[in-house]
Design a protein around this nucleic acid. Structure first.
Lengths: 122, 122
DNA sequence: CCATGGTTACAAAAAGGTGCGTAATTTACT
DNA sequence: AGTAAATTACGCACCTTTTTGTAACCATGG
């Protein structure tokens, strides 16, 4: 999804929240400051390239705050911005909606063959 | 995004809402019953393949109701399900959040070169 | 050599677009 | 009267574009 088709704000948010990682990263950052490699440990199936790309995207969108501490080795911390924190309940509401509506095609946990065991938020 | 990485309901909703089209289609279906070609006219840049795929996905998720009338030519109507209607305000909330937070990397309407003129919801 | 937090180039995989075929009936033209 | 074309909502095969993964490289200090 490189460019927009409409000028609707909804399409703009979805452009940044779409995909596997954005909401997951926001979920982990809810708990507070995290460093790059902590986030990698939280979701081991993300490649470091994806992680940097997604973090940049969230940073550009004003959802994530990146703070670089120069020391060696370089240390970088990621937090939610105040705006990012106000986004969290909205995303949670979507999750609750999903749980509440037991839709026909909804996958139940037991059926998800490819879910990774060691990575199970919520 | 073919399969899930966690068993978190948020990831599951995002799997169906991710991408350019799902929220846009929901947006148009808010107004009431629509037929296939009406939806194509509403967003002229979607291909018929994408439209059928996205509508099926939303149907499987219990968001959209598909009703087939056999006659010739075949007529098919799409509506939001009751569950789909309860989803609308949540999506709207995201759009409002986006408008409220004037994030640095946020594209402003005037800057979007590739936005299609004749397709401008909201 | 290790660790940190990257970048870059190349390759694989996934997503998306294009065009053809299908059905039964109506309308349009010759 | 006979033929042709359009209509609706797709399915299918093929091809291009976009996204993601892999691997290698960088800097630095311990």
């Amino acid at each position: 999804m490189k460019n927009l088709v409409s000028r609707c704000p909804i399409e703009e948010v979805m452009q940044v929240l779409s995909g596997r990682w954005p909401t997951l990263l926001i979920y982990y950052l809810k708990d507070g400051t995290k460093r790059f490699n902590e986030l990698r440990r939280d979701n081991p199936t993300i490649s470091h390239k994806m992680l940097t790309l997604e973090l940049r995207k969230l940073e550009d969108a004003g959802i994530v705050q990146r703070t670089e501490f120069n020391g060696y080795p370089l240390r970088v911390e990621y937090d939610l911005t105040p705006a990012g924190e106000t986004l969290v309940p909205l995303i949670d509401a979507l999750g609750e909606w999903w749980e509440a509506t037991d839709s026909p095609g909804q996958q139940h946990a037991e059926e998800i063959g490819n879910a990774v065991e060691f990575d199970r938020p919520v």
